[in-house]
Write a protein that binds this DNA or RNA. Structure first.
Lengths: 250, 250
DNA sequence: CGACAAGTTGATCGTTTTCAATGCATGTGG
DNA sequence: CCACATGCATTGAAAACGATCAACTTGTCG
């Protein structure tokens, strides 16, 4: 499966040479729909409602709270952070989205995005008009099922934040999850670059940045991790898993 | 709109006299679908896949973690608590579901229920086979949209637990939300009966039961609430709203 | 009446936050 | 090229909030 060049931008249909066309490999819908045995005309229907957007640069907003909702998007490259500003104006990080993951699902009900989404590095997206996708889903049960699954999965995702866990457990769970998500995409599970700032991690885990710093230092002193600025190596995955166990329940 | 008698049990289609049939008023799908202008045969399709189940008595389980998933259910009467047991076997309360609210949405992706659901008082449900409902949704765009909306809404529901809030703010937000949900169903917003134990509230909010007790006492001493065991009256809604403001952001 | 569970209250302890200062990169203008 | 500013990260000391432990009260039901 070929990957369309990154320079394909907003509004441009993906290259379609004769009867052949390709889905981008990171798009969350490609695999699901390709494996459902749809005929070519149906796949083309899905294909033409994809809009490749970006690149966004670090700090660029993908959407802002209150923007009219019309599309969900699969991250193709880079990391997206979602956040809201609480009543006092302080930022609250809701999540980080890696390649292959879908942003905007929490906006479907409200017709406006309920949070902000910002690029943490260079980001490209596959954008899907949601109304068109919903219409198409009526004719493609596999696509409908995939959408239901994506939505349903996200409902349970709050586990990291919801529990009453220690700072160690939270941070370990965060790192383990990150490692797994990278591994799913074919990256090394034990060496990773944290694209988000310490303050973002802390904010996401509802800890003070200082606490994140201290826990990382201790884990490093104990030989569990090797941390150099934003580059991180997991030296003892078993120890981390054990710490994360209470949070992740597996 | 008539309400079928509570004695209609599992597997029994709702009474259908001649060409007339009725949806139960608390069912989360009735209003949505009735207002979409579907013709009678389509409404009947939706109607016949409804199974009225119950009554469950206090402590009865609606489903358990690991049970095969086949249906979502709208609470018709009573309160349902969902929970998981963490790695140490301790209970973690995930949510409370009042009449009109839908349980089981987080199971769609996994084919098994990821949590337990237990009746806190006498509970009756409208159960919908999810595979059948998904099939029907393909033909009824309004039903599909409603399902997408329900799922999307639930994604954002973790706000109460996710934030770094004080015990006062959490409890106030909990009470305000409860009040609103009761009000939506036509109950008084300021007088309500808490169907869940203090320990459940504490567990849900990730606080110690003692802390819940103390905060309730203080709010009572300050004249904000009047609490008598499980009966609660909100005397100063504005004060409670102000406390909850940081959590609920509205 | 008595036993048991749930809830409340008080005293103490501990983890995390907060406050404050320093270190360390990167970038900018003289 | 250096001096300085800026932003992020780290470290230390102190304070605070909620948890824990323990005792007691209240309500419920046999």
């Amino acid at each position: 499966m070929r990957e369309p060049p990154l320079t394909v931008l907003s509004g441009t249909p993906i290259a379609d040479d004769g009867d052949e066309f390709t889905f981008c490999s990171t798009c969350a819908f490609s695999a699901a729909c390709l494996s459902e045995g749809y005929d070519k005309s149906q796949l083309r229907d899905l294909h033409v409602l994809v809009e490749h957007v970006g690149p966004f640069r670090e700090g660029d907003h993908v959407f802002r709270e209150g923007d009219p909702f019309n599309a969900i998007a699969a991250v193709r490259a880079g990391t997206v952070k979602t956040y809201v500003n609480d009543a006092s104006g302080r930022e609250q990080v809701l999540g980080f989205f890696l390649p292959g993951e879908v942003i905007g699902l929490n906006a479907i009900a409200s017709s406006r995005y309920p949070c902000n989404a910002v690029a943490l590095d260079t980001v490209t997206l596959c954008r899907f008009s949601f109304p068109m996708m919903a219409t198409l889903a009526s004719r493609m049960p596999g696509l409908q099922r995939h959408l239901f699954n994506l939505l349903s999965q996200d409902i349970g995702k709050a586990s990291l934040l919801s529990g009453n866990f220690t700072a160690d457990e939270r941070l370990a769970a965060f790192l383990v999850m990150l490692s797994r998500r990278f591994a799913e995409r074919g990256f090394s599970p034990n060496r990773m670059r944290l694209t988000m700032a310490r303050t973002d991690i802390a904010n996401y885990l509802r800890l003070a940045p200082e606490t994140v710093s201290r826990v990382l230092r201790r884990l490093q002193d104990e030989g569990v991790l090797k941390v150099d600025r934003r580059d991180m190596e997991i030296l003892q995955p078993a120890v981390l898993d054990e710490l994360a166990h209470h949070v992740l329940r597996d």
